[in-house]
Design a protein around this nucleic acid. Structure first.
Length: 414
DNA sequence: TCTGGGGTCCTAGGACCC
DNA sequence: TCTGGGGTCCTAGGACCC
């Protein structure tokens, strides 16, 4: 009998993914500060590069649009490492970034292209290690435990092989962390970025994890971090000193217990190789804030288009849903959502628009809007729609809710 | 001149059922 | 007369992630 294998979970994160894909097309930009992002149209207008009759790599650097010339809404999705030197980074508003690094080159997001590369690098991983969990376009977890070679040097050998294969096939680099669980692997993948590997074991907890800021825990965001700081807790080590009851008192039973474990590097989640979507949505931020009355026609057209896009997404992916919702964001950035669950599963644009329109009537519309979104949830696979037993007499539940919620506060607007 | 778009999960309260 | 819980569904908001 051999000893049981140690659980080896890897987290693989592509380095500056969107920007790196763009650099494959435009290698002349290598080493320069480049940011990807934008509320697309203004950038697209500036960037007529795709229509030029010459190889993309021959386009002179001087013809690329600069961040300082951008005047729209939007955020940075990715910045090259050269751009990060100037303090710009993901999720930063483009206008703010332009102040920090006006000379940076600004490229529009080309999601279709990133998705192509995303599929490519994931296919390469799957050929080497079959247990992979998709975490978005540029990240995956991989279970190394039972993969041949997955235990050698704590996973380093396999990590290196995967890195090398991805680079050979795509020209892209990535960083890998290997640890006993997802939580630690995720933190480890950041240790030697870019193009690095880090192996973390339980023995490293006190020396390599505890000195880190609580914010480094995947799941502790700006709000929780601020609250922890206000309670005098800055590092994961300090978090680990707190008692379970104290954490549950301040953060609730579930979150408190989760924090207690996380600070000790404990995480029992498995690598999930497949998942079903919970919702499908489309939303758009307008180029200027719109008013429900004064810009009624424009809003109505956008609304219809969003419904059509959601319907197309549902059709393409093969889903229907029975909870239809809207989301809007006011000019002060406050958001509101309304949704309604109907008896039959729907997927048709006109039906979605009709129900979403009802939702829109229940939300205040005096303030200007900056964003409108449409969402379909409670999804089922389209080929299962007819075989799903109607287990709940939804009719009177809906009636009760209608009585309560469906008060049309602006009946004529949509 | 702030702050994208597509998601997941959690909480909390009310309705309703048993 | 007053007082029950447990469970599910629905809705709204919010935190968080990529």
């Amino acid at each position: 009998m051999s000893a049981p294998l140690l659980r080896r979970i890897a987290h693989l994160d592509m380095d500056a993914f969107y920007a790196s894909v763009e650099l494959l097309r435009y290698p002349q930009l290598k080493g320069l500060p480049v940011v990807i992002g934008g509320g697309r149209r203004p950038v697209d207008d500036a960037l007529q590069l795709g229509q030029v009759e010459r190889p993309l790599h021959k386009i002179p650097v001087s013809e690329f649009p600069l961040l300082q010339d951008y005047t729209g809404r939007g955020v940075i999705t990715t910045a090259t490492y050269a751009a990060r030197q100037f303090g710009v980074g993901s999720a930063m508003g483009l206008m703010k970034a332009a102040k920090l690094c006006p000379q940076a080159i600004l490229l529009p997001v080309d999601f279709a292209e990133y998705r192509r590369y995303s599929k490519a690098f994931k296919a390469i991983i799957l050929e080497i290690a079959p247990l992979m969990e998709d975490r978005g376009v540029d990240e995956v977890y991989i279970d190394f435990t039972d993969v041949p070679g997955g235990q050698r040097e704590g996973g380093r050998v396999l990590a290196r092989l995967i890195q090398k294969s991805i680079f050979q096939h795509t020209g892209l680099t990535c960083s890998v962390g290997v640890a006993p669980n997802k939580l630690l692997a995720k933190m480890a993948s950041e240790f030697n970025k870019p193009n690095g590997i880090a192996i973390v074991t339980e023995a490293d907890l006190e020396t390599r994890i505890w000195p880190l800021a609580c914010r480094k825990i995947n799941g502790i965001g700006p709000k929780s971090d601020a609250k922890l700081q206000s309670l005098g807790i800055t590092t994961i080590g300090e978090l680990a000193k707190q008692e379970l009851d104290w954490l549950m008192d301040h953060f609730g039973q579930k979150t408190g217990a989760w924090m207690f474990d996380a600070a000790r590097g404990l995480d029992r989640r498995v690598v999930e190789t497949s998942s079903e979507p919970v919702s499908i949505s489309r939303e758009t931020t307008f180029e200027r804030d719109l008013h429900a009355v004064r810009d009624k026609a424009e809003l109505g057209a956008i609304f219809t288009q969003l419904c059509e896009q959601v319907a197309a997404d549902l059709a393409r992916k093969g889903y229907a849903g029975k909870t239809i919702g809207i989301k809007l964001r006011y000019d002060n950035f406050k958001a509101a959502t309304r949704d309604q669950t109907v008896e039959d599963y729907v997927a048709d644009a006109k039906v979605i628009r009709q129900i979403a329109g009802q939702c829109l009537k229940r939300v205040p519309l005096t303030q200007r809007l900056r964003l409108l979104g449409v969402r379909v949830a409670s999804l089922v696979k389209i080929d299962e729609v007819n075989s799903v037993p109607q287990k709940v007499p939804l009719t009177h539940i809906n009636k009760a809710h209608e009585a309560m919620n469906s008060v049309a506060i602006n009946p004529e607007l949509f």
